Amino acid sequence: MQIELSGKQALITGSTAGIGLAIATGLAEAGAQVTIVGRDQNKLDQTQAILVKTTGRNDIKTILADAGSAEGCQTIIAQQPDVDILVNNLGIYGGKPFFEIEDADWETIYQINVMSGIRLSRHYAKGMQSRGWGRIQFISSESALNIPAEMVHYGVSKAALQGLSRGLAKVLAGSGVTVNTILPGPTRTEGVITMMADMARERGVTPEEMPGIFLRENRPSSLLQRFAEPEEVANLCVYVASEQASATTGAALRVEGGIVESIA
């Protein structure tokens, strides 16, 4: 299978590191003109340079904006009025006992994890619909199906993306625009590597040992029995963005290493 995205405009939020950067890399390598979004100009410049070197593309665009706010989304839309592929990757996470999750915590995680995707999709889907082609993706998580007790608010925000994606797919039925969620499992991003190192220090084990301990204690149903690499998640995202995935819409596509105990 040869995925060819030449001539397509792609925008990925939360794309200066981790899964977002891997998705941006994969889409650019497949021929799409990629726009990355971030809140730090230095980080954007560094990521742009990495993408140019990695992909050989000199058309990587950057937008300095906080996609987790209404103002930031307007900035993105003003600088990139139309796209063919929208990947709503921006998201935050963090453990906190349920009884300590205050209203402000719920509001923050909802604005960043959910409303960012709502605002951008509400705008870009119109253009996709009128052109008869488009791809919208929401990067969810296996935590949407297995709500983690240690961060209920995160799991709930990711579950909301499932409903949003399915509903928007229905709105765009028959238009040539597909809408899907991608459900990664534990993935070896920079943030997760730091979290594992912190946990290792607390437990008195090595950073190399900690992922295995984490999976045994927190994700014992994992069939992969290791953390995924960001590129492994991105591979699915690139396929879902392709012409070859034209019959895949309204779906929750799992790349979580078999953690979810379901045959459906």
Rank of each mutant, 00 (worst) to 15 (best):
G14F: 06
R135Q: 12
G155K: 04
E190Q: 12
T16N: 05
I76P: 14
A251N: 11
A49F: 06
A159P: 00
D40L: 09
V34S: 00
W106Q: 01
T206H: 10
I85L: 11
V37Q: 09
A159H: 11
T13V: 04
G56W: 09
I36T: 02
A160I: 03
N146R: 11
I213E: 10
F138G: 06
L27R: 06
D59F: 01
L11P: 05
V171N: 13
S15E: 00
T47L: 04
P184W: 00
Q48K: 14
V177H: 02
G163E: 07
G18T: 00
I147G: 02
A200F: 04
T25W: 11
L44D: 06
L223E: 12
T108A: 13
W106F: 05
I263M: 10
S69Y: 06
E29L: 12
I101H: 08
E29W: 06
K8W: 07
R216K: 15
A24F: 08
L253F: 07
T194I: 05
I76Q: 08
G127V: 02
I112K: 05
E217Y: 11
V192N: 10
F138H: 13
R188S: 14
S121E: 05
K43R: 15
R254L: 15
T75W: 10
R119F: 08
L145C: 12
E107L: 14
V52G: 12
T75V: 14
G174R: 02
I19N: 00
D40E: 08
G134S: 04
I92A: 07
F214L: 15
P186Y: 05
L86H: 03
P97C: 00
D66M: 01
Q244I: 05
W106Y: 06
I139H: 05
I147R: 01
K170C: 13
G91M: 03
I213P: 09
E232H: 09
I263L: 10
Q80A: 15
Q46W: 08
L215D: 08
T47W: 03
G18W: 02
S221M: 12
N180M: 06
A144I: 01
D105W: 00
G212W: 03
G250P: 03
I147E: 11
G26Y: 09
N58Q: 14
Q48N: 13
G117F: 07
A28E: 03
N146H: 11
G72R: 01
V156Y: 03
A149D: 12
I109Q: 14
A30D: 04
S6T: 14
E256V: 00
V238K: 00
K8H: 11
S157K: 02
Q9S: 13
S222D: 11
V52N: 15
V255K: 07
V192K: 07
R201A: 15
A78S: 13
T54R: 15
S121M: 03
M195K: 12
Y110C: 09
E4Q: 07
G155Y: 09
S157G: 02
